[in-house]
Nucleic acid binder design. Structure first.
Lengths: 351, 351
DNA sequence: TTGAAAGCGCTAACAA
DNA sequence: TTGTTAGCGCTTTCAA
C-alpha cells in the first residue's frame, strides 16, 4: 500500500500530473470542471501531497525553525508537584515558541522546533537546517562554528545573548538596562543602600548582563561596586532562590541586606517563601526583586517587583526578521534590542 | 550562489556522491581518511544536506507533527499585564507541545507544530501531513473528514476529546472520572449539598465531560441532577470565573451555594479573587474547586483544590504511540485513557 | 487551459 | 570500502 502520488491522481482523473499539481498550487489556473475531477480523485485515493517532493522541486518549505537549548532533562518526571519548579524553568523556551508560532502562522509558515543535543554531522541542528526556509537560534544552543556554515545557506537569526556572528540578524533583550533601572529605583526612590545580587552561572549571558546593570547602578549611586554576585545559583530555580535567601540571611559576618535582587523571578519567588518562613517581612524588613515578569510574579504575595521581559515578542520579532530576510537576502544585518519595563509592585514597597 | 550539493562536495573531495551521502548517514562505513576529506570539503563549501531531498529519497522525515486549535488570536498583544489571562489559556497547547517535544527528542525526532486555520486543499494541516512521519491532532482542530483521508497515508493520533475515528490511535484524559471524584469528595467528606457547576461552551468536549462527572456524583449521592451547568462561560478565563462567581452570589432567588465547582483552574482563580473582594471566606463560607492543576493553582491563597490533568504526558504518550505505530503499521489501534488525580488543598477545606 | 519533460538533491540497491 | 545508477514525487518552463 504505497502512498498515492500525482501520477495516481492524474491517471484516475484523466489529466496530466502537471494539472494535478496546479490544482494544489494555484487552483484558479485550472478549469473548474477539471479541478473538481482532480479533487474528487484525490479524495478517493487518499492523496496527500508530499512536502518533501514539493520542497525539493520548489526549493522552499513553508516552514521556519527554532533551535533551543535542552535545559530540562527530557527524562524528568512531569505533572507531579515536584516537577512544577522544573516546569517553570522551561517557560522561557515556551514563550519563544509561542511567539514564533503565532507570528509564523500569520505569515503562513509552520514551525519546526528542536532542542539541541550533541553536535556532529547528524545533529538535530543539521536536521532542522535542512528542513526549513530559515530559523532562529537561542543563545548557546548551536556552536558558532556550525552557524557560520549553515548561515551561508539560509537565513539565521540569533536570539538573546551577545551577537556572536556579525553578519547575522540578531535580537536581544535589554537585560542590563532593566536591572540598572530596577536597582536605581531601589536606591533612589526607596533609599536602600545595602543591596545583594543573586546571579546565575558565568556562562549565562542574560544573568551576567543583569549583573552588569546592577553594577552600573551601584557605580552611578556611589555605592561599592561588587565584582561578583553575592551568590551564584546553578539553575536559577525556586529551590535555589530559597537557599540563596537563607544564605544571605545567615551570614553572621555582615549586616542583613536591605534588598535582594534576583536574576530571575523563579529564584525571587523561592526567596519570598524562605523569608516568610523565617518571619522576615517583605518589604518592611527587606525588599525583594526578580526579573522576567512571569505570570507567577504578579500572583505571589507580596506581588513581586520585577522587570518585564518581552520573551514572546522575541519570538515574534525573530519571525519578522526571517520573513524579511527571505524576501531580501541582501538587506543589511539587523541587531534589535528589545526594551524591558520595570514593574513596581509590593515586594519593593511600591504596593 | 546556489546552495552546494552532494555533487559539489563529491567533486571537491574527489569521491562519489554516494560516499558523501554515507558520511552523513553512516560515518562508520567510510574510511576515516576519506571521511575527513569529505567533511573538510563540506565545511569549506558550507554544505548542509537538504532535508527535502533526503526525505524524498528515503521516504522518512525524522519529524513528528502536532496540529492544535488556534484558540488565542495570533494578533493579540503579548507581554502586557492584560495579556496574562489570555496567556494562561494557551498553557494547554504549550504543555502538549512540551511533552511531545521531549518525547520526540528522546526518539530522535524533531517536532513540527502548526495551529489550524481554514480548511481547503492548501491548509496548514496538509502542509504538516506532507512533512512528517506521523502526527498528533488535538480535538476539534482538523475536520474528521480530512483526517480520514490523511490517516490512510500516515499515522495519526487523536488527543483529548472523543474518539471520532475508530481505526486511529487515541488518547484522552479521564475528565469525567476526575470531576466525579472531586464532587464526591465535597459531598461525602465535607458534607456539602448545595453545589454549583460552572462550565464552558457545549462544544468543548473537556468541559462537557467534566460536567457529566459532576452530574454522576450528584446522582450517586441522591442530590438533584442538573441538566445544565449553573453558568456557562465562553472562554473559561479568569475574568469569566470572576463574573460567574458574582452571578452565583447575586442570585436572590436561591440560597448561596456551599461550593462552586469550575470547569478549569483559570475560572476558579478568578472566582477566588471575586469572593475575596466580596468578603466571602473560602473555604469557611464556600468551597471552590478547579480543574487542570496548573502551577498557579498551588500558589494562590487559599491554594486551590483541583484535579491534576497530565497534559504534558498527553503529549509524551502521543509520541510513544506514533513511534510504535511507525514501527508496526498493523498493530491494533489503541485508545488510552490517562488517569487524573484529585489534589485536595485549602479551597475545599482540606488544608 | 493543459501536457511533456527536465530536473530538484539525495538514498539505496547493486557492482566493483 | 567506494562508485554507478535509478528513482523518490513534485514543480516548472516551454509548447501546444
Amino acid at each position: 500500500m504505497s502512498a498515492p502520488t500525482v501520477y495516481d491522481v492524474a491517471e484516475r482523473s484523466g489529466v496530466s500530473i502537471a494539472t494535478v499539481s496546479r490544482v494544489y498550487r494555484n487552483p484558479d489556473s485550472v478549469r473548474a470542471q477539471t479541478r473538481d475531477r482532480v479533487v474528487e480523485a484525490a479524495r478517493e485515493l487518499g492523496y496527500v501531497p508530499s512536502g518533501n517532493a514539493r520542497g525539493l522541486a520548489s526549493r522552499t518549505t513553508g516552514v521556519l525553525g527554532l533551535c533551543f537549548p535542552d535545559f530540562a532533562d527530557p527524562d524528568a518526571e512531569a505533572d507531579t508537584e515536584a516537577a512544577d519548579d522544573d516546569s517553570a524553568v522551561m517557560l522561557y523556551s515556551d514563550h519563544v515558541i509561542r511567539g514564533m508560532e503565532r507570528a509564523a502562522r500569520r505569515h503562513g509558515y509552520a514551525l519546526l522546533i528542536a532542542a539541541s543535543l550533541a553536535g556532529g554531522p547528524e545533529s538535530l541542528v543539521a536536521k532542522v537546517a535542512g528542513r526549513v526556509d530559515g530559523f532562529a537560534v537561542l543563545a548557546r544552543t548551536v556552536p558558532t562554528e556550525d552557524l557560520e556554515v549553515i548561515s551561508r545557506r539560509l537565513p539565521v537569526v540569533m536570539l538573546a545573548g551577545p551577537r556572536e556572528i556579525d553578519h547575522l540578524d540578531h535580537i536581544e533583550v535589554a537585560n542590563s538596562d532593566g536591572e540598572r533601572e530596577l536597582a536605581q529605583h531601589l536606591i533612589e526612590d526607596h533609599g536602600l543602600r545595602r543591596l545583594a545580587f543573586v546571579g546565575g552561572q558565568p556562562d549565562s549571558p542574560d544573568a551576567e548582563a543583569r549583573f552588569r546593570g546592577y553594577q552600573e547602578a551601584c557605580r552611578d549611586a556611589g555605592l561599592p561596586v561588587p565584582d561578583e554576585p553575592s551568590v551564584r545559583a546553578a539553575m536559577m530555580t525556586r529551590a535555589e532562590g530559597q537557599r540563596a535567601a537563607e544564605t544571605l540571611l545567615g551570614r553572621g559576618d555582615a549586616p542583613r541586606p536591605q534588598a535582594m535582587l534576583f536574576a530571575n523571578d523563579q529564584m525571587a519567588v523561592g526567596a519570598l517563601h524562605a523569608l516568610e518562613r523565617r518571619g522576615v517581612r517583605v518589604p518592611e524588613d527587606i525588599a525583594v526583586t526578580g526579573f522576567d515578569g512571569i505570570p507567577l510574579s504578579r500572583i505571589v504575595r507580596p506581588s513581586l517587583t520585577t522587570v518585564r521581559q518581552p520573551i514572546q515578542r522575541l519570538g515574534e520579532e525573530a519571525v519578522e526578521l526571517l520573513v524579511r530576510r527571505l524576501a531580501d537576502r541582501d538587506r543589511d544585518p539587523v541587531s534589535l534590542m528589545l526594551p524591558v519595563s520595570v514593574a513596581r509592585r509590593d515586594s519593593c514597597g511600591c504596593g
